[in-house]
Each structure stands twice: as C-alpha cells, then as structure tokens.
C-alpha cells in the first residue's frame, strides 16, 4: 500500500499517458489483493460450513426425530447435561477464587500456577485421561487409598465429571482472570473507604462488574465439557446411562445406527450455536462495561 502511494506520488510529475501506465497496474494489484482475500475467506467459510450443513442435509428428518426417543440418545443427553452442569458449577466455585487471586495478587510461584492451570488446554485428551487414571484410578496415587476405603472413582459418573472439570477448568479460569484484571482497582479502593470489607467488596462490587466475563467463561467451560471425549473414555469408560456422554454415544452409535449418531450430532451442533451466540453477546457487554 505504501509502495502504491509512493508510485502515485511520482505520477504528479509525469505526463498524462505515463501516469496512466503506472496507475492502472497499482489499481489492478489492489483489485487482485481484494479478490484473493475474498476467495480465501469464501474457502475458509465453506470449509467450516460444509461439514455442519452436511450433517443437516444428510439426516433424514423423520429418522432423526424418531431417534430422539431412542434410549441411547435420551440416556446420553441426560447424562451429558447433568455432568456438564455439575462440572460447570464445580469449575465456577473452584475457579473463581483462583482466578481472582491470580489476577490481583503477586505471590511466589504464580507463573507456575498459571502455567499449570493452562496445561489441560494443550494436553492431548488421551494423555489427560491416562493421567487421571494414574491419579484417581484403582491403582492410582490417590485412588489406591480411596479404593482401600471402598471408594472407587474410575469408570463412574463421578469420573466423567472429574475428567470434564480437568479439561474445561482452564477455559473458565483464564476468562475469569482477565475479567477480574479488567476491573479497575479504584472500585475496590472506593468500596473499602466506604466501609465495605474485602468479602463485601468482592460480592457487591467486583463480582457484579466482572459478571459478564465470568458467565461467558462458564458457558465456554460448559461447552467444552459437553464435547469432552478423550479423557472421559480413558478414565470413565463407555457405559450407557453411567458414563456414556453424547460424544461417546455418537462414537458408539456410528458402529451400528448412523441415524442415532446424526441425531446426537445435530443436538450438539445446535447447543454449540447457542453457546457461541451467548458468548458473543456477553463478550460485547464485557467490552462495553470496560469502556464505560
């Protein structure tokens, strides 16, 4: 672009015919650039949209609707919604204080704690599953002792929740930390001088100001736990009604009834769309709050 401006600048000193000779190639370049960018955008959009659209096109509507009453679908749907809700509640209760402390206080080892929190995001799900098994499994470091008291975790619904908490907590904690960092410390200071304790200030000032960001983070964590597959199948197994969540049911049904698979996939896609819409709406409100 700068090069074009330099070229155009020179044209002021050139006779009419020569000026045209230089200007036309620069316009052509600009148009070619725009066309190239447009094409890339269309290709990228098609690449993402095609599989999603195919899901709907290839699903016979009556068969998909019938599959809704299939026990596999109902069990998976109920279990997924129940575990994801409990996971989100756990992540919010556990993650909010952690996010606040990491946003507001400097302590020895904070960077290490931050990296540890982010680790499950980059960890392959299968690795997460086997790591959870080594920690909480029957022969795991902690699971060994729990098992001695007759409290087995692996291959139970609790294992599904633990696996989901492990993989989805970074999504909430990271977003919550950013939201807390965005809250001006002057609000906290003002509240303290007005007679509010730290706890009162947290619940009446900081939390409401950061709430949109926290909700957005919770929705992301919910979505991540709903789609969790690798760690769950490794750590919790694949038992209908107990540990078979929707992604696991899709995988299992693929080997038998494709319609059941498609029905579950469509439900997950619809939930994903709703999640994205909610997150976008809330993110816009977060930025508006920060601007104000």
């Amino acid at each position: 672009m700068a090069l074009n401006q330099v070229e155009l600048g020179h044209t002021n000193e050139l006779p009419g015919q020569d000026r045209e000779a230089i200007v036309i190639p620069s316009r052509t370049k600009e148009m070619a650039l725009k066309a190239g960018l447009g094409l890339t955008l269309i290709l990228a959009m098609t690449f993402i949209a095609l599989p999603v659209v195919s899901l709907f096109v290839k699903s016979p509507l009556d068969a998909t609707l019938r599959s809704l009453y299939d026990p596999v679908v109902m069990d998976a749907l109920k279990l997924s919604l129940m575990t994801s809700t409990l996971t989100t509640l756990t992540v919010v209760l556990m993650g909010t204080p952690i996010a606040y402390v990491n946003a507001r206080f400097h302590y020895f080892g904070r960077d290490i704690a931050d990296s540890l929190i982010d680790l499950p995001v980059i960890m392959p799900p299968a690795v997460a599953g086997i790591a959870l098994l080594m920690a909480f499994g029957r022969m795991g470091i902690l699971g060994h002792y729990l098992n001695a008291f007759g409290f087995g975790i692996a291959f139970t619904t609790l294992a599904v929740i633990i696996a989901q908490v492990f993989v989805s907590s970074p999504f909430y904690i990271r977003q919550a930390k950013t939201s807390f960092e965005d809250v001006d410390t002057a609000f906290e200071d003002a509240a303290r001088t007005l007679g509010a304790s730290r706890v009162y200030t947290f619940f009446h000032v900081i939390l409401p100001i950061a709430s949109n960001g926290l909700i957005s983070g919770a929705i992301m964590a919910f979505a991540r736990s709903l789609g969790e597959f690798g760690a769950t199948i490794m750590f919790a197994g694949n038992f209908q009604g107990r540990t078979q969540t929707m992604p696991l049911a899709i995988y299992t049904a693929m080997q038998g009834d494709l319609n059941v698979s498609l029905c579950l996939a469509i439900i997950l896609v619809i939930i994903s769309f709703v999640v994205i819409a909610l997150v976008k709406m809330l993110t816009r409100r977060v930025y508006k709050n920060v601007r104000d």
Partner: peptide, 19 residues
C-alpha cells in the same frame, strides 16, 4: 483497616460503581 477509618475519599476517576 480502611473500612473502619471513616474517611470520605473522592477518587480522581470518581470510581463510581458502573453497575
């Protein structure tokens, strides 16, 4: 503690609670 000093403080940014 600041909450029991009973001091009125007007901050430069006013720090009015936006919510």
């Amino acid at each position: 503690a600041p909450e029991v000093r009973n001091i009125g403080y007007v901050f430069q940014s006013y720090a009015l609670f936006p919510h």
